[in-house]
């Protein structure tokens, strides 16, 4: 029962580590996912191919493998960064594939005529996408994007195996000190719940404000 009180600073350190990983990876995943979704519906063939390859490769390989590739692979090409930055890169790129597909399914819910009307008024591809199609797609992708970011928060635990400070990894330190393993994990679970429920709440608010009215 005293696990939390005795190891509070360890927990907080781990909690903040997970929070940072989740936050920065989410930003990267949303930006890249947005870009890749634009590529996948672009009128330019090479962009579509690039987007498709990006999604296919990242969505169909294990995240752990991607961590190995980034943490061990990139330094070989002379790119040496802190492990936390590598972890954000791996998590962000991986999750961007899922964000991209969620956005694309939203784009597909917007009636074809909306894009045709925009183009017939002389808007180019970028204007059509950003002024007409995406604002309407956004409303139907709020729930799946929320789920994807919750999955991202939990996936960040893998970074602990690569000596990045995060929440799950704290169990090793606490366990070595001889504390009850069950309670150690209970408090870790509570830490994750705080983050994931906060993401849920944020997306519930977004959905209430911008979601499709029924």
């Amino acid at each position: 029962m005293y696990v939390l009180k005795d190891n509070f600073s360890t927990y907080v350190e781990g909690f903040l580590g997970t929070l940072q990983l989740t936050f920065y990876s989410s930003l990267l995943a949303l930006a890249l996912g947005f870009l890749m979704a634009s590529f996948r519906v672009a009128p330019v063939g090479s962009l579509r191919v690039f987007g498709t390859v990006w999604v296919t490769v990242l969505r169909n390989t294990p995240l752990t493998l991607l961590f190995f590739a980034v943490l061990l692979g990139l330094p070989r090409f002379g790119l040496v960064l802190p492990f936390q930055v590598f972890a954000v890169l791996a998590l962000g790129c991986y999750t961007s594939a899922f964000i991209c597909e969620a956005l694309r399914s939203g784009i597909n819910t917007v009636p074809r005529g909306q894009g045709e009307a925009a183009r017939s008024l002389g808007m180019n591809f970028g204007q059509t996408l950003h002024l007409v199609v995406l604002p309407q797609a956004f409303r139907s992708v709020i729930p799946p994007v929320g789920s994807t970011l919750i999955a991202l928060a939990k996936n960040s635990a893998i970074a602990g195996a690569f000596s990045v400070t995060e929440l799950l990894g704290t169990y090793k330190t606490i366990n070595e000190l001889g504390y009850n393993i069950v309670w150690t994990f209970v408090w870790i679970a509570v830490g994750y719940l705080i983050i994931t429920l906060a993401i849920s709440a944020l997306f519930n608010v977004l959905e209430r404000r911008y979601g499709v009215a029924r």
Binding site: P111, G113, Q114, A117, A118, V132, P135, Q136, R139
Partner: peptide, 10 residues
């Protein structure tokens, strides 16, 4: 001008 109007819904 289209059969289904296609006004921007948002």
């Amino acid at each position: 001008v289209f059969q289904s109007f296609n006004l921007f819904a948002h």
